[in-house]
Amino acid sequence: MAVIESIIQHYNHWIMIFLMVSGLYIVVNRGNMVKKLVGLSLFQTSVYLIYITPGKILGGTPPILDDAFTVYSNPLPHVLILTAIVVGVATLALGLALVVRINEAYGSIEEDELFANGEDGT
Protein backbone atom coordinates (compact mmCIF):
# COMPACT_ATOMS: atom_id res chain seq x y z
CA MET A 1 0.00 0.00 0.00
CA ALA A 2 2.78 2.42 0.89
CA VAL A 3 4.44 1.64 -2.43
CA ILE A 4 1.34 2.55 -4.43
CA GLU A 5 0.93 5.74 -2.42
CA SER A 6 4.52 6.69 -3.07
CA ILE A 7 4.08 6.07 -6.81
CA ILE A 8 1.00 8.31 -6.92
CA GLN A 9 2.75 11.03 -4.90
CA HIS A 10 5.77 11.15 -7.15
CA TYR A 11 4.33 10.22 -10.56
CA ASN A 12 4.51 13.82 -11.81
CA HIS A 13 8.11 14.11 -10.71
CA TRP A 14 9.15 10.89 -12.38
CA ILE A 15 7.51 11.75 -15.70
CA MET A 16 9.10 15.17 -15.42
CA ILE A 17 12.52 13.60 -14.88
CA PHE A 18 11.97 11.28 -17.85
CA LEU A 19 11.07 14.21 -20.10
CA MET A 20 14.04 16.24 -18.89
CA VAL A 21 16.49 13.37 -19.38
CA SER A 22 15.11 12.64 -22.86
CA GLY A 23 15.65 16.27 -23.78
CA LEU A 24 19.20 16.11 -22.44
CA TYR A 25 19.85 12.90 -24.38
CA ILE A 26 18.60 14.43 -27.64
CA VAL A 27 20.73 17.53 -27.14
CA VAL A 28 23.89 15.52 -26.45
CA ASN A 29 23.44 12.65 -28.90
CA ARG A 30 21.68 14.00 -32.00
CA GLY A 31 23.69 15.99 -34.53
CA ASN A 32 20.78 17.60 -36.34
CA MET A 33 20.27 21.15 -35.11
CA VAL A 34 16.47 21.26 -35.47
CA LYS A 35 16.30 18.05 -33.45
CA LYS A 36 18.58 19.60 -30.85
CA LEU A 37 16.22 22.57 -30.53
CA VAL A 38 13.24 20.22 -30.11
CA GLY A 39 15.23 18.50 -27.37
CA LEU A 40 15.91 21.82 -25.69
CA SER A 41 12.22 22.67 -25.67
CA LEU A 42 11.44 19.22 -24.21
CA PHE A 43 13.90 20.03 -21.43
CA GLN A 44 12.24 23.40 -20.95
CA THR A 45 8.66 22.10 -20.78
CA SER A 46 9.69 19.55 -18.16
CA VAL A 47 10.71 22.52 -16.01
CA TYR A 48 7.23 24.01 -16.48
CA LEU A 49 5.85 20.80 -15.06
CA ILE A 50 8.17 20.85 -12.03
CA TYR A 51 7.09 24.41 -11.24
CA ILE A 52 3.33 23.96 -11.69
CA THR A 53 3.07 20.64 -9.82
CA PRO A 54 3.71 21.91 -6.24
CA GLY A 55 1.36 24.87 -6.81
CA LYS A 56 -1.65 22.57 -7.07
CA ILE A 57 -3.82 22.04 -3.99
CA LEU A 58 -6.15 19.06 -4.11
CA GLY A 59 -9.71 20.37 -4.00
CA GLY A 60 -8.56 23.87 -4.96
CA THR A 61 -9.69 25.89 -7.96
CA PRO A 62 -7.79 28.05 -10.46
CA PRO A 63 -6.74 31.35 -8.82
CA ILE A 64 -9.57 33.50 -10.14
CA LEU A 65 -11.27 35.08 -7.15
CA ASP A 66 -14.94 34.41 -6.60
CA ASP A 67 -17.20 34.26 -3.55
CA ALA A 68 -18.14 30.66 -4.30
CA PHE A 69 -14.62 29.31 -3.63
CA THR A 70 -12.23 29.52 -0.72
CA VAL A 71 -9.30 27.27 -1.70
CA TYR A 72 -7.19 28.40 -4.62
CA SER A 73 -4.08 26.90 -6.14
CA ASN A 74 -0.90 28.92 -5.81
CA PRO A 75 -0.80 31.65 -8.50
CA LEU A 76 2.90 32.47 -8.20
CA PRO A 77 4.32 29.49 -10.17
CA HIS A 78 1.77 30.16 -12.89
CA VAL A 79 3.08 33.69 -13.33
CA LEU A 80 6.69 32.54 -13.43
CA ILE A 81 5.94 29.87 -16.03
CA LEU A 82 3.90 32.25 -18.19
CA THR A 83 7.01 34.39 -18.39
CA ALA A 84 9.17 31.33 -19.06
CA ILE A 85 6.97 30.10 -21.94
CA VAL A 86 7.06 33.43 -23.73
CA VAL A 87 10.81 33.85 -23.23
CA GLY A 88 11.23 30.23 -24.35
CA VAL A 89 9.54 30.84 -27.69
CA ALA A 90 11.65 33.97 -28.19
CA THR A 91 14.89 32.05 -27.67
CA LEU A 92 13.58 29.21 -29.86
CA ALA A 93 12.95 31.69 -32.67
CA LEU A 94 16.49 33.00 -32.25
CA GLY A 95 17.93 29.49 -32.38
CA LEU A 96 15.93 28.62 -35.49
CA ALA A 97 17.09 31.81 -37.20
CA LEU A 98 20.68 30.77 -36.43
CA VAL A 99 19.96 27.33 -37.94
CA VAL A 100 18.68 28.97 -41.13
CA ARG A 101 21.80 31.11 -41.33
CA ILE A 102 24.10 28.12 -40.74
CA ASN A 103 22.31 26.25 -43.50
CA GLU A 104 22.78 29.22 -45.83
CA ALA A 105 26.46 29.56 -45.05
CA TYR A 106 27.56 25.90 -44.89
CA GLY A 107 24.79 24.00 -46.72
CA SER A 108 24.13 21.63 -43.83
CA ILE A 109 22.52 21.51 -40.40
CA GLU A 110 24.19 18.26 -39.35
CA GLU A 111 26.95 18.65 -36.79
CA ASP A 112 29.11 15.86 -38.28
CA GLU A 113 29.03 17.34 -41.79
CA LEU A 114 29.83 20.78 -40.42
CA PHE A 115 32.87 19.43 -38.56
CA ALA A 116 34.01 17.54 -41.67
CA ASN A 117 33.73 20.70 -43.76
CA GLY A 118 35.73 22.62 -41.15
CA GLU A 119 38.59 20.10 -41.28
CA ASP A 120 38.77 20.41 -45.06
CA GLY A 121 39.35 24.11 -44.58
CA THR A 122 36.36 25.08 -46.69
Binding site: T45, I52, G55, K56, G60, P62, S73, H78, I85, V86
Partner: peptide, 15 residues
Protein backbone atom coordinates in the same frame (compact mmCIF):
# COMPACT_ATOMS: atom_id res chain seq x y z
CA UNK B 1 -5.72 19.61 -14.60
CA UNK B 2 -3.18 21.30 -12.32
CA UNK B 3 -5.39 24.46 -12.12
CA UNK B 4 -3.02 26.61 -14.19
CA UNK B 5 -5.55 27.81 -16.78
CA UNK B 6 -3.57 30.87 -17.88
CA UNK B 7 -0.46 28.79 -18.41
CA UNK B 8 -2.49 26.24 -20.36
CA UNK B 9 -3.81 28.88 -22.74
CA UNK B 10 -0.35 30.31 -23.27
CA UNK B 11 1.18 26.89 -23.82
CA UNK B 12 -1.53 25.90 -26.33
CA UNK B 13 -1.17 29.09 -28.36
CA UNK B 14 2.55 29.73 -28.05
CA UNK B 15 4.00 26.26 -27.51
Amino acid sequence: VLDAVDVAMTEASVG
